[in-house]
Computed example of a mutant assay.
Amino acid sequence: VVLKLVRRLVSGIHPEAEISRYLTRIGYANTAPLYGEVVRIDPAGVPHTLCILQGFIDNQGDAWNWALDYLRRTVDELALAVDADDAAPDPEKEAQAIEGYQEMAAIIGKRLGELHVALVAPTDDPAFSPEPATPEDVRAWIDGTQTMLATALDLLAQRVEQLTDDTKELAQSLLDRRAALTEAVANLVSADAGALRTRIHGDFHLGQVLVAQGDVFLIDFEGEPARSLEERRQKSSPMRDVAGLLRSFSYASAAAQSTTESAPQQTADRKRALFDRFRGYAAESFLDAYRTAVALATQPLVAPSAEQALLDLFLIEKAAYEIRYEAANRPTWLGLPVRGLAALASRLLGDTGTPHEPEPADSSAATPPNPAEGDYE
């Protein structure tokens, strides 16, 4: 078992215990089962979770570190083999290496899809009953993204002269097209998107996935620690979780690229191209497996015609959030979310020459995406 001690006590129902209890009850297998919770009820009748007891998952570490290790080891082997042989890359070896990364991405996509299927199933529990997203809900999602985007662009405007040349050019292109991008986001998702509001993971990235015996388990349903418990318990679109994982693949690729820092230029360029291909194929496999899994849901999570637009909305929100986070905590990493946001902007605005993700960042410290402190000791 694992005993999680809550180090920052807050008033209200804790989403980690609430969601874990629900998933345990309905039999979702790929998470830690809930065994118990210690709660203090104050004189006003308000609960305060003190600790949570869950089943221990025998694992080989989280998917973030698995991805870093796999990418660094595999890309080094592929790139150095070319240098040693002074020949063209072996397409078969590269395909096999990429397939191994794709397989893990697909497993994560399948398990996330199964989680969303479980959370969209009809239930008498109002906290978990899926609801159609109203036009007001869709507008709230758009407004939230607009607010995050405005904050990110304001930060870039303040710091643009401090950025490296490549990042500065991309940041300036975003600032120059601020009005067009804002308008595109405002009109990105139609009010009748056919979307559902359900409970979701809320803070999904590779660090929230445990790798275990060729499978994965999804953990830590506390939501983003910076938000209130009420916000973390709100229903939202499952596409928000999908966007979080896609952005996490980009972070893993960039963090792994620290192996290019001391390599000769030709080898470094070759490695960067490999990292980019690994990320692209992983994202594709993740999405394919996810869509296959959610096709079994009792009702569509979003109308097929609106899925990409809604996913783009949350990808923009996530990239903008990352800019805000990196500006405050790791300024040398700003190039990664700036490039991600620039790529999204170029696609939405119909530009040619869309930049490819990911751009190598100063990745001397490989820390997980969204590394805000959690609730637990």
Rank of each mutant, 00 (worst) to 15 (best):
V39P: 10
L23T: 06
L53D: 06
P47W: 09
A17G: 06
D42W: 01
N65A: 06
T31V: 11
A44E: 11
P47S: 13
A44H: 07
Q60M: 09
R40Q: 13
C51A: 13
E37I: 04
V39H: 09
Q60V: 00
D62V: 05
P33H: 00
Y22W: 14
L34C: 08
T24K: 05
L53S: 07
P33I: 00
V46E: 12
F56L: 13
L23C: 06
G27V: 08
P15C: 12
A17I: 03
L34M: 11
D62Y: 03
N65D: 12
Y35K: 11
N59A: 13
A44C: 02
I13W: 11
H48D: 05
Y28M: 07
L53Y: 07
Y35R: 14
A63Q: 02
P15N: 12
G12D: 00
E37F: 05
A44Q: 12
Y35N: 06
Y28A: 04
D62A: 02
T24S: 15
P15F: 11
G27S: 04
V39E: 12
C51H: 04
H14L: 01
E16N: 12
L34T: 13
A29K: 05
E16Y: 08
G55I: 03
A44K: 09
H14Q: 03
N65S: 10
Q60N: 11
E37S: 08
N30A: 10
P47G: 10
Y35F: 15
I52R: 00
Q54C: 05
E18C: 01
N65M: 07
L53V: 15
Q60A: 14
G36V: 04
Y28G: 04
D58S: 06
T49F: 07
R40N: 12
L50D: 02
L50G: 00
G45I: 09
I26K: 09
L50W: 02
I57R: 05
L50T: 02
G45L: 07
R21M: 07
L50R: 01
Y28K: 03
G12M: 09
L50H: 01
R40D: 14
G45C: 08
P43G: 06
